[in-house]
Write a protein that binds this DNA or RNA. Structure first.
Length: 871
RNA sequence: GCCCACGUGGCGGAAUCGGUAGACGCAACGGACUUAAAAUCCGUUGGCUUGUAAAGGCCGUGCCGGUUCGAGUCCGGCCGUGGGCACCA
């Protein structure tokens, strides 16, 4: 008969709920420990097997708590998002209703797994008391510029004062965009609100952009760059389309986002992904004069040392100078090419296997290094979105340029040579490594690194260029054409010369979503909100004049970019988080979540955190000190669980068959937490048996407590050693998230306890219960109570171990001949080398193998082995 | 193509300052209890091989090579799996 897990699990879940056992207060004298998971999107499907990984943080919290920490493990709901909205579209139900229903169901399921959250800190991104502060933070972005002198965000009001004094020409910030009009102080005074707004938009951290965006017709919304690969994988199409959208200037933080990765205790591959996404490149910007026209083409290159080898230039098809420099004789060809490029999808354009295409503009530029006349081409292998949208082509030393030059018969010259290699032959393929500069005038003979700095100095002296750093990271597209998201706290005013955005004051937050008839996105690129004229048409509270509301909503990433802060002070209605709470709890000591968020959520929240840091709202540079990624659990056939494959295993089935304790413990026992591993329905029986064996040490078949198997004896020397070893191992393994080996250590301990002569010492049993408690909290609480304790086990102390008592006093000595094991024997610890060697010489089997041979050497590793080397 | 992980019994996995390969669990097989089954308990279990037995031998951590008294662990080169990036100048 299995122990009555259903009964006791309900009992203790109820107990923890009513006693608020895992509620923790800010400012205890105990050291704090803050562990959290990536919160759930409460889908209508309910919990799946993957959610059981939340047990890891629960186990950590429970152990840390028993170890004397003020341990916080909160949870909440990432509840804005598409599925609820799509359900609403189909059933004409407000998404709030399904969201609430789903949350109630999720909460019930999480409790059924025995997770000990501090429910007093539960948050919900769709709660007006939460998204009020999401909107508030958005306004911080809107009301900020990035000060490049102080290297931090500062209030836009500060910038305005500077402009009023000195105009816009020498501001301590980058003014982004190509056609930004500048103002003197006088002109600024005379400028219209719209004009001022246009200028400030070029500096704000949240700004409107009219650039091409990723439009997904199936979803009826635009997507951030980081989201595109995932949606394309799901089979959705993403096309480029020009739309006016809110952007967040994450690029201003590129360097800090990169630098601050260094101190983080994250998986190397995740750090690497972030580094690659940010994509920092060092090089130079160089100006090329266009022959005749007087115009200048600026390029970015990481190899300024190869400037002498630049035999032609290429502009991106979208480059603004294309139209201007194209000669009349080439006009028709250029137009035809531009038309062809426009028709290509992004996917086609990015297809590497494709032949290089391009067309000559008819114009020439002057290579600033050697004064040679070089042709200017356009080609779609040059991207407008990176660098300056134009390149100098060095076909001798760049693969893409080489391919292009070969295809169009452009000259290829060698300007870098591998040391010690004859470089007089023509290049059969591009040489992209570093080497020695040749055919490069004043650079000849210099190694690449030195040639780079020499060239940059020369360019700077000649005022032809300068050192430059570029990033692949693009600004974050922050609006979505959906209903179920945070409304922007923005209205558009119009004084007669065009619309411009204005922030609504803090006192008007939260800006609520209106009730609508249809949640269906229009598909034209307008949000469903755009159709609610009575909501859209409002008044500018400042002037009382008519104004129009922003009808896009924020992406789902918004609420999750700062939720780890709200847990700390969830009811605060005067600020997102109090200084006290933030100071006490931050940073997050352990954050557990999926790798799929390595460059989305994790990058976004780091960015928001840094902006808040600049304003002193948070005190740490980084939010998440230590990051762990759970590995996904595959179906029993070793492939990813999916409904179409019919290999989905449901946690409910195992919950009802074996109970939450078995399910949690088995999930952790499956294998390394971060590894991908198949589910095995049989395997859970092993863990279930293990828990049953513990149960039976203190309870009779009929369910009545029977402590007669427990003795008042002190543990034997062997058991005592095992206890100390296990306390040490479980503590260390759990801290390192090596749960599988911690569970196996507990199984070993139980095996030894059952072997103990004369019964199981009660003290040993208590230790076992405490050690298993984080994994199987219900059975542990129940047995703890049956041992006569009144308070929750989780208010008791974690056992201590004595290092000296973990040491074995006998060791198995391995005797080898030429590295092969020939004998093993048990000997006391700490014998001398001579004594150990004597054992080897005495061993019959060793003798057999060294007989008649010359002993060349004897290697003795104390307490481990003796290796006799014979020749 | 580039970058990052990883490759161990029938299965999940353990063991990496180089020092007993296969802990723990599943499955399988044999046994005890039972009228029987379930549950429970005990035992065996990497492959090949010598021996009546006691006890031995050889092989074995994806493949090939190297360093070492000794390699799952370190080095070089392949092969395979998973993940990420992908004309980023």
């Amino acid at each position: 008969m299995a122990y009555p897990f259903s009964e006791i699990e309900l009992k203790w879940q109820e107990y923890w709920r009513t006693h608020e056992t895992f509620r923790v207060e800010t400012g205890s004298s105990k050291p704090k420990y803050y562990v959290m998971d990536m919160f759930a999107y409460p889908s209508g499907e309910g919990l799946h097997m993957g959610h059981v990984h939340y047990a890891a943080a629960d186990i950590m919290m429970r152990m840390k708590r028993m170890q004397g920490f003020n341990a916080l493990h909160p949870t909440g709901w990432d509840a804005f998002g598409l599925p609820a909205e799509q359900y609403a579209v189909r059933h004409k139900l407000h998404p709030r209703i399904t969201t609430e229903k789903n949350i109630a169901n999720f909460r019930r399921q999480l409790e059924a797994l025995g997770f000990g959250y501090d429910w007093s800190r539960e948050i919900n991104t769709t709660d007006p008391n939460y998204f009020k502060w999401t909107q508030w933070i958005f306004l911080k972005f809107f009301d900020s510029y990035y000060d490049t002198k102080e290297n931090r965000a500062k209030p836009i009001a500060d910038l305005i004062s500077l402009i009023e004094k000195n105009g816009t020409h020498s501001l301590p910030c980058n003014v982004h965009g190509r056609d930004v009009r500048h103002y003197t102080a006088e002109e600024w005074k005379a400028a219209t609100n719209k004009q001022r707004s246009d200028f400030l938009g070029a500096c704000r951290l949240a700004y409107l952009s009219d650039a091409p965006v990723n439009w997904c017709p199936e979803l009826g919304t635009v997507l951030a760059n980081e989201e595109v690969p995932e949606q394309e994988e799901k089979g959705f199409t993403v096309v480029r389309r020009n739309m006016r959208q809110w952007m967040l200037r994450i690029t201003a933080y590129a360097e800090r986002l990169l630098q601050d990765l260094d101190g983080l205790d994250w998986r190397e591959s995740t750090l690497e992904m972030q580094r690659n996404w940010i994509g920092r490149s060092e090089g130079a910007e160089i100006d090329f004069e266009i022959a005749g026209a007087g115009d200048i083409i600026r390029v970015f290159t990481t190899r300024p040392d190869t400037l002498f080898g630049a035999t032609y230039m290429v502009l991106a098809p979208e480059h603004p100078l294309v139209d201007k420099i194209t000669t009349s004789s080439q006009r028709a060809k250029v137009d035809e090419y531009l038309e062809a490029v426009k028709r290509k999808s992004d996917l086609e354009r990015a297809d590497l296997s494709r032949e290089k295409t391009g067309v000559f503009t008819g114009a020439y530029a002057k290579n600033p290094a050697n004064g040679e006349r070089i042709p200017i081409w356009i080609a779609d292998y040059v991207l407008m979105s990176y660098g300056t949208g134009a390149i100098m082509s060095v076909p001798g030393h760049d693969e893409r340029d080489f391919e292009f030059a070969e295809a169009f018969g452009l000259p290829i010259v060698r300007v870098v040579q591998a040391p010690g290699v004859d470089g007089s032959e023509p290049l059969a393929k591009p040489f992209t490594d570093e080497g020695i500069a040749v055919n490069s005038g004043f650079l000849n003979g210099l190694a690449t690194a030195q040639a780079k700095t020499t060239m940059i100095s020369w360019l700077e002296e000649q005022k032809l260029g300068n050192r430059s750093i570029k990033y692949k990271l693009r600004d974050w597209l922050f609006s979505r054409q959906r209903y179920w998201g945070e409304p922007f706290p923005i209205v558009f005013a119009n004084d007669g010369d065009g619309e411009y955005p204005k922030a609504l004051g803090e006192e008007r937050l939260p800006v609520m979503l209106p009730e609508v008839e249809s949640y269906q996105p229009s598909g034209t690129g307008e949000s469903p909100l755009a159709t609610i004229t009575e909501w859209v048409n409002t008044t500018d509270p400042e002037t009382g004049k008519p104004a129009r509301r922003e009808t896009n909503t924020m992406p789902q990433w918004a609420g999750s970019s700062w939720y780890y802060l709200r847990y700390l002070d969830p009811k605060n209605d005067s600020e997102p988080v109090s200084k006290t709470a933030e100071n006490y709890w931050m940073p997050v000591d352990l954050y557990i979540g999926g790798t799929e968020h390595a460059v989305t959520h994790l990058l976004y929240s780091r960015f928001w955190h840094k902006v808040l840091y600049d304003y002193g709202i948070v005190s740490t540079k980084e939010p998440f000190r230590k990051m762990y990624h759970q590995g996904i659990v595959l179906g029993e056939n070793g492939v990813k669980m999916s409904k179409s494959l019919g290999n989905v295993v449901n946690p409910d089935e195992f919950l009802s068959k074996y109970g939450a304790d078995s399910l949690r413990t088995y999930y952790m026992f499956l294998g390394p937490f971060e590894a991908m591993k198949p589910w095995d329905s049989q395997g859970i029986m092993g863990v279930h048996r293990f828990l049953n064996r513990i149960w039976r040490l203190a309870v009779r078949e009929d369910g009545v407590t029977d402590l007669s198997r427990l003795t008042a004896n002190a543990p034997s020397r062997n058991l005592e050693r095992a206890l100390h070893q296990t306390i040490q191992k479980v503590g260390e393994d759990v801290s390192a998230l090596q749960f599988n080996t911690a569970v196996s250590a507990l199984m070993i301990l139980l095996n030894k306890m059952e072997d103990e002569e004369g019964g199981v010492p009660r003290t040993a049993f208590e230790t076992l219960i405490k050690l298993i408690a984080p994994f199987a909290p219900h059975i542990a609480e129940e047995l703890w109570q049956r041992l006569g304790n009144n308070d929750s086990l989780f208010n008791s102390e974690w056992p201590n171990y004595d290092e000296s008592k973990t040491v074995e006093d006998a060791v198995v000595l391995v005797l080898q001949v030429n590295g092969k094991v020939r004998d093993k024997l048990e000997v006391p610890r700490g014998l001398s080398r001579e004594a150990l060697e004597a054992f080897a010489r005495d061993s019959a089997n060793v003798k057999k193998h060294i007989d008649g041979k010359e002993i060349r050497k004897v290697i003795v590793v104390p307490d481990k082995l003796v290796n006799v080397v014979v020749g």
